[in-house]
């Protein structure tokens, strides 16, 4: 399955919807979207990975790159993910300590609301 990307804003949070496979072939499209969003002043990103079928280290690199960019603007890049097969690669690489990972978009929004 190819990669489908969409995004919308809710309050100060930009929610990026990702569907399909994030690998060496498709990851550049996600990288371009994250760079574009940051360049347009969206510094609080929530990447919804609930419909991601596959994620490899190239995809992890893109997410880490996005996190670096938003942090340069005191922003945040967090994830929504409950799929064990996707979470496993975050655990193997130690990236669970780096990303905020939520069980749902609502949970992430509530956490952001309490930050205000």
């Amino acid at each position: 399955m190819d990669l489908k990307l969409d995004h919308h804003s809710e309050d100060r949070l930009t929610i990026v919807e990702v569907e399909g496979e994030i690998d060496v072939y498709t990851a550049p499209r996600l990288r371009e979207l994250l760079i574009d969003l940051v360049n347009k002043g969206n510094f609080h990103l929530l990447v919804n990975m609930e419909k991601v079928d596959f994620l490899d280290s190239t995809g992890l690199g893109v997410l880490v790159g996005g996190l670096k960019r938003v942090r340069a603007h005191d922003g945040s890049l967090e994830l929504v993910c409950t799929q064990e097969r996707i979470l496993k690669i975050f655990r193997i690489t130690g990236l669970t300590k780096v990303f905020g990972i939520y069980a749902s978009v609502e949970e992430a929004k509530e956490a952001h609301g309490s930050d205000k």
Binding site: L60, G61, I92, T93
Partner: peptide, 25 residues
Amino acid sequence: RFEDPLVQLPDTLMSGFGIAVIVGL
């Protein structure tokens, strides 16, 4: 070292990182 991946990991594939994932799998 994975303690601070933000410092080490560029937003492109890094050979050692991919191999570390394979070893974990």
